[in-house]
Simulated assay, not measured.
Amino acid sequence: MLFGLIVACEVAFWVLLGAGLAVRYLLRLRRLGGLLLLAVPLVDLVLLVASVADLRGGGRAEFTHGLAAAYLGFTVAFGHDMVRWADVRFAHRYAGGPPPDRRKRYGRELARHEWRAWGKGMIGWAVACGLLLAGVVVIGDIERAVALLEWAGRLTFAMLVWLVFWPLAYTVIPKRAPVDARPPLDARESHHDRVPHSSGEQS
């Protein structure tokens, strides 16, 4: 039942996001669109209340309780970025806004980008682990809360893998930008033909 609620919350997140952007840019009702976008975090609140109520019922923590905590944590960390990502693209397509930044990153810029993303991931990890530990306190019995502690271990392992293979990897071995290929020979010759001759070379 809790897993179904998680899926419903994910669907509701995108429905509210799409509705808010459509009202803001298609119907030109910016205030109402903004209110719909502000309602997006309420979806997470519903899931949090349902999870706490389920744990307080005296049952054993299950896989879905840990999944709910992980979902909430990383939604807190990356939810704003997802809203901004969708807003930029919707505004560009339907309201003449600036195009989204699609340039590729290399070298130190890519490393900084990966460190920032991992830092946000750590915020999600901290929120999720905080919720998991709070769940352990609510249950009041380690044996019935084992699933929550296992989720804390999974998330910690995932963050370590992320750290090693992305931020650290791109810092130690920076990704180099591809070397620009020289223009074709015929293109160079055409360019040479278009260059005017100096007065000294004229017959």
Rank of each mutant, 00 (worst) to 15 (best):
V127I: 09
H192M: 12
D87E: 08
G66Y: 01
F3P: 00
G153C: 07
Y71L: 11
Y170S: 10
P183W: 07
V136D: 02
A134N: 02
R56N: 07
V49M: 07
A95N: 15
G200R: 15
H113D: 11
H197S: 13
I173C: 02
A68H: 01
K104H: 15
I139T: 02
M82L: 15
F165A: 14
R105N: 04
A158P: 06
R108S: 13
M1D: 11
A69L: 05
A145E: 02
P167W: 00
R144P: 00
L16P: 05
V161T: 13
P100D: 07
A128L: 06
V138I: 13
L160N: 08
V137Q: 10
A152S: 12
R24F: 01
W162L: 09
L35H: 14
G107F: 03
I142H: 13
V49C: 02
P167K: 04
L32R: 10
V164K: 03
F3L: 14
L47K: 00
S198T: 14
F13E: 03
D54R: 10
D44I: 00
G130I: 05
R56I: 02
I142R: 15
V136T: 08
R93A: 14
L72D: 00
V179G: 12
V164Q: 08
R89A: 05
P41G: 05
L42R: 14
L72F: 03
V43C: 09
L149H: 05
A50P: 04
L45Q: 08
Y94D: 05
W125Y: 13
W166F: 15
R176D: 10
T75L: 09
F74M: 05
D87Q: 02
E109G: 03
F165W: 15
G66A: 09
Y94N: 08
L55H: 05
R176K: 14
L45W: 10
V11S: 08
L26A: 13
V146C: 01
G20K: 02
R188D: 06
L16V: 09
D180S: 15
C9R: 09
V138N: 04
R188I: 01
V7N: 02
K120C: 03
G140N: 04
G34Q: 09
